[in-house]
Design a protein around this nucleic acid. Structure first.
Lengths: 332, 332
DNA sequence: TAATTGAAGTTAAACGTTTAACGTAAATGT
DNA sequence: ACATTTACGTTAAACGTTTAACTTCAATTA
């Protein structure tokens, strides 16, 4: 089972009758060589099955050709999409992706990020990172890009316009003639509140105010649990907007379990436009937050930073409203 | 913006007035030291903010403390769950996870795996890998664990019992009195056929045969596209089983769009029990394939292999039927 | 023709760790 | 009292690359 020691650059050099420097430069395409030498090296490489040792290379260059991606929860399709996008552009640039799901949190995000930081050339960090870790992130000396949250301390960020997205939903509901509109929100951090602001502003234009219900985690289950409080407490809202599609699906499910028809009795909408949204009964109105493009943009931004090129500081993606049957004029 | 050179073990040694060997052994807890020395080292480490350089360490030890996880598509909740599970146990053992989504396939899985193989101590490889790459995987000299597919060439595998799972669904449908049962399958590789076998055997016990419809990729869209052919061609089946929950959701959605009621007109079931299954209207009957446990088990198995301990060759997880409203006695 | 440039390769030092082999002094056994 | 072990540290050689500085020789320029 024991495979023999992998060939080193020295083996190749010896077999080809040249110095290791020559082989190195050839491999990295740093210099031209005479056809004979080139052929000999190529033959030696093939013959020995030589592959670079990334660790050795990293040690001298100080680069790992790896980037870290810290996300909240891979199971949330929004984050899965981000991984997808980031993975695509990383592969295209010959970078590897070190993914860490910080929900699985044995010793604090900070410790995880610290461990991660030495193994990567740069870091893409998701929204819900505690403020005190941010100071540290700014000082690690490695490029960092945020996504989903506002930039701080000069750290660039990539995100979609949550205010705009919520404003669109709000307007959409108002145009449908809705009067009592509830928001099941997740506002733990300031930037998470922008959705509430957008919604509030849209409603204000029609002299309306959202009924806000706070949850502690944006999941299917949390949406489900919130439903009865939101739908049965006091006068029933005509529409309810979830912090994201998961929350919205939870709400929708429980609403139906309570015997309410959607959208006739209550309309429901969410954010992210996760793939299943379209497949619900009724299909869920959502706002496409361009998750995958967020992943791509974040990775692109990070790679330019790693290359020490200047990049634009912030990238703001335009969300798109996707109206579906879960919000529809009550009289239709 | 330029941060100063990170402290090396030599800096620490000098500051503490000891040799680098001492520091190294202290860091790695390989030896006991006198309280004074210990204190001096600790002070130096803290004072300088010393962290190990993983690349340098890797070079001499030959270990990277990183494992590679090659999956088909992060967006599929089944795979997301596997990442979750694998991530959890990796973190617990201080390993990092190099995730690669091989659907994003610029230059072939083989090339990706080759590149990956030098950066990791071991590899977890998902099901749909071409046979010719497997020979190569067996020879790279690094531990490899499969998941989802059968083992080959002595490579251990972790999977759930697809035959059993399908058999359970089949029996469930038969017990509900279903007669015409369709299977929308994805049978490109041999091991993917076990679900069909399980279903076939369960039906055979009632002298029934499944109607098989093949799709080319197990996705929401594929399920949706398959629906009309399966449901409208000839006599309509009373139940249709999708290769996985995504396919089942696609089928269900299109069936409803065609005006069919579920389960009254046609029952639907799938595999994986993805989180949203429970939230559908009606909730989708599925089989929990223990995705997350698969990820955990695969990682555990890999880590024992990396530690050169002997582990059991194959791990077979027991699926669990989760009956829900999408399959229900027509007369209920 | 002599001086200058350029191309093709080499030498050797570094990168930051680990670890086998080796001291040295104190503790233990006989 | 002497040999042997044990505990605590050190020395120095690796690990597999890259790269600045250098050589050599042929081609170009003045």
């Amino acid at each position: 089972m024991q495979t023999k020691r992998p060939a080193t650059i020295r083996d190749v050099a010896q077999a080809a009758g040249v110095s290791t420097a020559t082989v190195s430069k050839f491999i990295n395409r740093l210099q031209r060589f005479s056809p004979e030498v080139e052929a000999r090296i190529r033959a030696a490489v093939d013959g020995l099955g030589y592959r670079q040792n990334p660790a050795a290379r990293s040690m001298v260059t100080g680069q790992t050709r790896t980037v870290g991606l810290a996300i909240q929860d891979v199971r949330n399709p929004h984050f899965a999409n981000i991984v997808k996008g980031a993975n695509r552009v990383a592969l295209a640039h010959d970078y590897s992706l070190l993914v860490i799901d910080i929900e699985e949190n044995p010793s604090g995000e900070r410790a995880l990020l610290e461990a991660l930081s030495r193994r990567v050339d740069g870091l893409i960090v998701s929204s819900r990172i505690p403020e005190e870790s941010i100071d540290w992130l700014a000082e690690i000396g490695k490029p960092v890009v945020f996504f989903g949250r506002l930039s701080r301390l000069g750290i660039p960020c990539v995100r979609s316009d949550g205010y705009q997205a919520a404003y669109m939903i709000g307007r959409h509901l108002v145009e449908l003639g809705m009067q009592r509109i509830a928001y099941v929100g997740f506002t733990r951090a300031r930037w998470n509140a922008e959705r509430l602001h957008g919604l509030t502003d849209a409603l204000a234009e029609a002299n309306l105010t959202p009924i806000v219900h706070e949850i502690d985690t944006p999941s299917l289950e949390a949406g489900e649990r919130a439903a009865s409080a939101v739908l049965l407490g006091g006068k029933r809202p005509e529409a309810v907007v979830g912090y994201n599609d998961l929350v919205a699906l939870g709400l929708m499910h429980e609403a139906q379990a309570l015997g309410l028809r959607i959208p006739e009795d209550v309309a429901v909408a969410g954010f992210d436009d996760i793939p299943v949204a379209r497949y619900m009964q009724p299909p869920l109105t959502s706002v496409d937050m361009r998750s995958e493009q967020q992943g791509e943009a974040a990775m692109n931004r990070l790679l330019t930073a790693i290359a020490r090129e200047e990049g634009e500081s912030d990238v703001l993606l335009e969300p798109r409203l996707i109206p579906r049957a879960s919000t529809r004029r009550p009289l239709d």
